[in-house]
Write a protein that binds this DNA or RNA. Structure first.
Lengths: 345, 345
DNA sequence: CAAAACAACTTATGCGCAAAAGTAAGGTGC
DNA sequence: GCACCTTACTTTTGCGCATAAGTTGTTTTG
C-alpha cells in the first residue's frame, strides 16, 4: 500500500502538499502541482490508511449497531425480515453519509459496550438491548446512542428512541375487529414488557371503549422456547375456541397460530379471526392473507440512522420519534362465526 | 480515554512495561510489577486505542462482509431469513475469534473493494457479489476472500467458495417427485445462472434418468420486479395447469406461487404438487407445509467465517467446500391429480 | 573467575496521517 | 521603502501503540 510519504518522495515534494490535494484544500496548492498530484493519486489508486487517519483525527467513522440475540426456537424467525430490513435501512443511510457499520449480535450489553469503546465508534444504535442492566452500562458511554423500540422510562431520559405508536396501532386494529361484530377477543404474546405491553394496552383500551371487560385469561401466552412451543400452541389452540378473534402481537405469531389452528382443523377466518402486527412477507404470502397493522421497518432503520448522524454532528433531536402505523385489511378478520360453527373440516 | 503513556507516568515506570503486562508477555515483567499494573488497568478500565494498535501492527481485526443488494419488489424477501441467518452465523464465529464485522450492502463491487482496502480489513466474505466484473475487481485485492454460493469457474481459481450441492439437492427432490408418480414437472426460477443453473441441472438430470424429455417451455420464468411480478405470476399460473408438479428454485418462490395458485382456486397439493428449496420458515409455517430441500444457512455462515479465519492465519483450505442438503418431505407433494381434476373450488 | 547468558527493566523509533509552525519569495499599501 | 500580507510551499510535531535496541545488575558456565 502506497503512502503519502512515498508519493511525496516520488513527486519530489512535501507530504503536506500531497495531503492538501487529497483533502482538496482551497488556495494551498498551485493549479499545476494540484494537477500533477491528482494524476499520480489516480494512477496509483491511492487509499489512505484509515487507522492512521483516525488516530490523527481521533474519530472512527464507524457506527456500532447492536442487536440482542435470542436463544429460542424462533431465533431465526425473530431475526426474520424485521432485522434484515432494519439493518438494510441503517446501512444504506450511514454509508451514504460516509460512515460504516459495525454489527454486534449479542446478549451481553457490557461486552458490547466494551468493544464499542475500544473501537472508538462515533455512535451507537441499539435494538432490544436496553433492559435495566443495559441502561446502567450504556449511560456510562459518552457517545450518542439511538435506541429502537425501547419503552424504558428510565432509558428515555438518557437516549433518543425511534419507535412506533404501538398502542394506537393495536387499538385501531382491535376497534376494527370489534366493528366486524366480535366481542370475544383474545390477545396473544410471549411477554408483557416494552412493545408487547404497549400493544396489549392498545388492545385493552379498545375493549374498554366498547364496553367489553378484559379478564386475565384473555391474554394467551405463547412460550416460544423450542421445548415448550408445541405444548404452548396446543393449549392456546384449545383456549382459542372460547374466542371469535385473536389479536396477535406480531405477524410471526399470527402465522404460527394460524398454522397450528389449521393443523387442528380450525379454519381462519371461518372459525376464528386472526390479526397480526408488523406487516411482513410472512403474513402477506400466507393464505388466507393476514389482516395486520403495517409498520415501515426499513424506514425505522433509516430514521434511527439519520437521527444518530444528527446527534454525532452535535445537533439536538427529540427524545422520542414515533413513526405511524396503518391498518392493512386482508382476509383473516371477518364477522364472527355463529357460536355453533368452528369451521372444523 | 487513558493511554499507556499516562498509566506509565502515574505508576512511574516505562510504557513498555505496561504494554508487556497488557500483552501478557511471559518473563518480561516481575510478578510484583505485573500485579501492580494489572490492578491499575482494571481500576481505570483501560481500553486500548484500536487505531493506534492497528497502525502499529498493520492489521485491523475487521472482517468485511459484502452482500449484493437487490432492487426488485422482493428486495425484502430476498433479504429474508437467508441473510439474517447467514450474518448471524458469520458474526458469531468471527466475534468468538476476536474479530469484528463490517457490513456492506451494495451492488457496486468496485466501491466496496475500495472501502475494504481503505479499512485494511483482514479478510472478506462475499455473497452474491461475484459476477465477472466483481471477479476482475476483487482479484486485485490482496487479502483472503471467501465466497458464498458462487459458481463462477473463473472465480474459483482465485477464491475459496462455500456452497451447496445444489445439483444433487434438486436432483433428489425431483427424483422423489417422480417417485410419487409425476411425469409432467416444471421448473420455476428467475434466471439460469449460478445457483439457479445448478438446481436446474439437477432437475434435468432427474428427468432424463426417468426417461422424461425436458422442453424449453418447462422452465417457468418468474420476473420478480415489482411492475412485472403480477403479470408474471398470472402467466405462470396459467401454464402451471399443463403440469402436475412444479419444482421451485427457492422456498420464497414456492410460497409465492402457492399463494398465487390458491388465489386462483387451484389447490396444492390436490391440483398440483409444489416443491421448494432452502427450508426456511416461509415454507414451514405455510399450510400446506412445504415439501422442500433443506440447507443449513447458519452453518454456511459459520463455515465461511471459519474458513476465512484459517486463510487469514495463513493456513490452506480447499477451494470448494460443499455442505450437504436433505430432503424434507411435508405436505405439498403427493401423487398427481387425475387429469380431469385441478382441485378448483 | 572471566565470559557469556539472563532477567528486568528503559529509551528510542516508527507505523501513516493531519495539522501546526516555519520559510521564502513576491506583492500591496501608505 | 519599510511593515505587512499573501501564496506556495516545507519542516516538524504528535496521535497511541508495539517493538527493536539499549542498559544494568545478577546468575550461570566451562
Amino acid at each position: 500500500m502506497i503512502t503519502i510519504k512515498e508519493i511525496a518522495k516520488q513527486l519530489n515534494m512535501s507530504t503536506t502538499t500531497v495531503s492538501n490535494v487529497i483533502h482538496d484544500k482551497e488556495g494551498e496548492v498551485s493549479k499545476e502541482k494540484r494537477r500533477i498530484v491528482q494524476e499520480f493519486l489516480d494512477r496509483v489508486d491511492y487509499v489512505p490508511n484509515i487507522n492512521a487517519r483516525n488516530l490523527a483525527q481521533n474519530e472512527s467513522k464507524i457506527i456500532g449497531v447492536a442487536l440482542k440475540a435470542r436463544a429460542d426456537k424462533y431465533e431465526n424467525l425473530i431475526m426474520d425480515p424485521f432485522v434484515s430490513e432494519l439493518i438494510g435501512g441503517i446501512e444504506e443511510t450511514i454509508r451514504n453519509a460516509g460512515y460504516f457499520m459495525m454489527l454486534y449480535i449479542s446478549r451481553d450489553t457490557e461486552k458490547i459496550m466494551r468493544h464499542v469503546s475500544t473501537w472508538n465508534v462515533d455512535g451507537l444504535i441499539l435494538f432490544g438491548m436496553l433492559d435495566d442492566d443495559g441502561i446502567r452500562v450504556s449511560t456510562k458511554y459518552k457517545k450518542p446512542i439511538v435506541c429502537i423500540d425501547t419503552y424504558s422510562i428510565e432509558g428515555l431520559k438518557h437516549f433518543t428512541n425511534v419507535g412506533l405508536d404501538d398502542e394506537k396501532g393495536t387499538y385501531e386494529m382491535v376497534k376494527y375487529i370489534i366493528s366486524c361484530g366480535h366481542e370475544k377477543i383474545a390477545f396473544m404474546s410471549d411477554n408483557t414488557k416494552g412493545v408487547d405491553l404497549a400493544r396489549l394496552t392498545g388492545y385493552k383500551r379498545a375493549l374498554k371503549e366498547a364496553g367489553i371487560e378484559f379478564k386475565e385469561e384473555d391474554f394467551l401466552k405463547i412460550r416460544p422456547k423450542s421445548d415448550e412451543i408445541d405444548a404452548s400452541l396446543e393449549e392456546i389452540c384449545r383456549r382459542a375456541l372460547d374466542y371469535t378473534a385473536i389479536m396477535c402481537v406480531s405477524d410471526l405469531y399470527a402465522v404460527t397460530l394460524m398454522s397450528a389452528l389449521q393443523d387442528r382443523g380450525i379454519r381462519v377466518p371461518e372459525g376464528i379471526s386472526i390479526a397480526g402486527f408488523d406487516d411482513n412477507m410472512l403474513g402477506s404470502l400466507y393464505r388466507p392473507a393476514l389482516t395486520t397493522v403495517h409498520q415501515d421497518v426499513k424506514k425505522k432503520g433509516v430514521v434511527a440512522a439519520q437521527t444518530l448522524l444528527k446527534l454525532i454532528k452535535g445537533e439536538k433531536t427529540d427524545h422520542q420519534i414515533t413513526l405511524p402505523t396503518r391498518l392493512v385489511v386482508r382476509d383473516t378478520v371477518t364477522k364472527p362465526r355463529k357460536s355453533s360453527f368452528y369451521g372444523f373440516r
